[in-house]
Design a protein around this nucleic acid. Structure first.
Ligand SMILES: [Zn+2]
Ligand SMILES: [Zn+2]
Ligand SMILES: [Zn+2]
Ligand SMILES: [Zn+2]
Lengths: 137, 137
DNA sequence: CTCATATCTATAGTCGCTGGAGTATTTAGA
DNA sequence: TCTAAATACTCCAGCGACTATAGATATGAG
């Protein structure tokens, strides 16, 4: 039996976050001690580690909820789980592409620095005028 | 004189967002019509375009507030503006680096898909066990 | 038994918007 | 000039994924 603090230490998930996951339906409401404190089993420790890992990989709470629901039916085909992961990969790639555009614009913007005043600062001028940009972003 | 709707159409910033920027101190409170509606000058249109562009480049409201304050003193040196942009570039690069790690883990995770069940789905197993990952993320 | 530590609930704050309710103003056509 | 449509006003709630209080209660070691 683990207290919420034990779970927190073992998974690196902060205590209020564990309670938040319970509220969001990722963790089931655990048993309680006589004094109403949460008491977890090993199963729930593993489940929390799964959640933590999925969050670290950027999956949304909703996606994780779906994956957890799927994992309760080991005999079913896993197309849906694969789809969730594939879609997430696509969204990560989109984010990277968007950020790379920003990166290249920002590189251009900060390239010109030295001794000058706000009045002729390229940073300020470039921000004022998108037509100086090489991409839309 | 532009109404808030004119400003919105010309900059692509939604009306509630314009009011939000005013509340956040990015736009000064404009003149009002007899009936209390906002009336803007060209100056404020340009300022909003600046804000929009800076937001599109991912700068925070706070950074933009600082840049706008700086731009009121064209004679001063621009080191601070350059610093804000450079720092932002660094944070964009960090985000890209993090996302690339996620991308490579997710690629690995979704690589193995075909006809199988949840019970032996690599997606589910990989999420349950970070030690299968090649990077920390 | 005492007392420090841990946990409980409920609530509010973070960021950058976005949407709605309910009311008031502006503007264009008849 | 009157009316109806479009627009704008303020205030407030909600998003996602936490995080941080406040004030009360429970647990566990000495
Ligand atoms: Zn400069
Ligand atoms: Zn641009
Ligand atoms: Zn699978
Ligand atoms: Zn991992």
């Amino acid at each position: 039996m683990y207290s919420i603090g034990d779970l927190s230490r073992r998974t690196g998930v902060k205590i209020p976050t564990i309670r938040y996951y319970e509220q969001m339906g990722l963790l089931e409401a655990p048993e309680r001690s006589e004094g109403n404190q949460r008491r977890y089993e090993k199963r729930e420790l593993e489940r929390l580690a799964f959640i933590r890992h999925a969050r670290d990989l950027g999956l949304s709470i909703e996606a994780i909820r779906d994956l957890l629901a799927l994992s309760r039916h080991p005999e079913r085909p896993c197309g849906e789980a694969d789809r969730i992961a594939t879609e997430h990969l696509a969204s990560v790639r989109e984010k990277i592409a968007r950020l790379r555009k920003l990166e290249s614009e920002l590189e251009r913007i900060v390239a010109c620095h030295g001794d000058h005043t706000i009045g002729d600062c390229y940073v300020i001028r470039a921000l004022a005028d998108h037509s100086m940009c090489g991409t839309d972003h």
